[in-house]
Computed example of a mutant assay.
Amino acid sequence: MPNPPIGFQHGLTLDQAQRIAMETLAEGRRLNLAPLTVVVLDQAGRYKALLREDGASLLRPEIAHGKAYGAIGLGLGGQELAKRAAAMQGFMNAYSDLAGGAAVPVPGGVLIRDSNGTILGAVGVSGDVSAQDEVCAVAGISSVGLVADTGA
Score class of each variant (00 low, 15 high):
residue 76 L to H: 09
residue 147 V to D: 03
residue 113 R to T: 04
residue 114 D to Q: 05
residue 100 G to W: 14
residue 21 A to G: 03
residue 32 N to P: 02
residue 48 K to P: 03
residue 21 A to H: 04
residue 137 A to Q: 06
residue 30 R to T: 12
residue 80 E to V: 02
residue 62 E to V: 13
residue 55 G to T: 09
residue 56 A to Y: 04
residue 16 Q to A: 11
residue 21 A to V: 00
residue 27 E to W: 01
residue 51 L to I: 10
residue 11 G to R: 05
residue 49 A to C: 01
residue 27 E to L: 03
residue 4 P to I: 01
residue 19 R to W: 00
residue 108 G to R: 13
residue 119 I to C: 04
residue 41 L to M: 09
residue 130 S to H: 12
residue 4 P to S: 00
residue 55 G to A: 08
residue 12 L to E: 06
residue 105 P to N: 05
residue 150 T to W: 00
residue 106 V to A: 14
residue 38 V to S: 12
residue 69 Y to W: 13
residue 1 M to D: 06
residue 74 L to P: 08
residue 16 Q to R: 12
residue 91 F to G: 07
residue 16 Q to Y: 01
residue 149 D to F: 01
residue 72 I to S: 08
residue 123 V to E: 05
residue 31 L to R: 15
residue 130 S to P: 05
residue 13 T to Y: 00
residue 60 R to Y: 00
residue 107 P to R: 04
residue 90 G to Q: 14
residue 136 C to E: 11
residue 72 I to A: 01
residue 51 L to G: 02
residue 44 A to H: 01
residue 131 A to G: 09
residue 100 G to C: 10
residue 25 L to T: 04
residue 28 G to P: 09
residue 5 P to T: 10
residue 112 I to E: 04
residue 130 S to C: 10
residue 123 V to P: 01
residue 36 L to P: 15
residue 27 E to N: 05
residue 61 P to N: 02
residue 13 T to G: 02
residue 46 R to T: 00
residue 44 A to S: 03
residue 47 Y to A: 00
residue 18 Q to I: 11
residue 8 F to S: 04
residue 125 V to K: 03
residue 87 A to V: 07
residue 39 V to R: 03
residue 94 A to V: 12
residue 145 G to W: 03
residue 39 V to A: 08
residue 2 P to A: 07
residue 68 A to Q: 09
residue 1 M to Y: 13
residue 115 S to I: 06
residue 121 G to N: 11
residue 109 G to M: 10
residue 82 A to L: 15
residue 84 R to P: 01
residue 30 R to C: 09
residue 58 L to H: 11
residue 81 L to S: 08
residue 26 A to M: 06
residue 114 D to R: 02
residue 131 A to S: 12
residue 110 V to E: 09
residue 14 L to K: 14
residue 128 D to L: 07
residue 90 G to I: 15
residue 80 E to T: 10
residue 4 P to M: 04
residue 16 Q to P: 02
residue 136 C to F: 01
residue 74 L to D: 10
residue 77 G to C: 10
residue 107 P to Q: 10
residue 115 S to K: 15
residue 94 A to C: 14
residue 124 G to S: 02
residue 71 A to I: 05
residue 46 R to P: 00
residue 56 A to C: 02
residue 89 Q to K: 14
residue 102 A to L: 14
residue 14 L to R: 12
residue 92 M to L: 13
residue 102 A to P: 05
residue 145 G to Y: 09
residue 135 V to W: 01
residue 50 L to T: 14
residue 62 E to F: 08
residue 12 L to D: 06
residue 24 T to I: 02
residue 112 I to T: 06
residue 35 P to D: 10
residue 56 A to N: 07
residue 88 M to F: 15
residue 130 S to Y: 08
residue 5 P to Y: 04
residue 107 P to D: 00
residue 82 A to I: 10
residue 77 G to A: 09
residue 9 Q to D: 12
residue 71 A to M: 12
residue 65 H to Y: 13
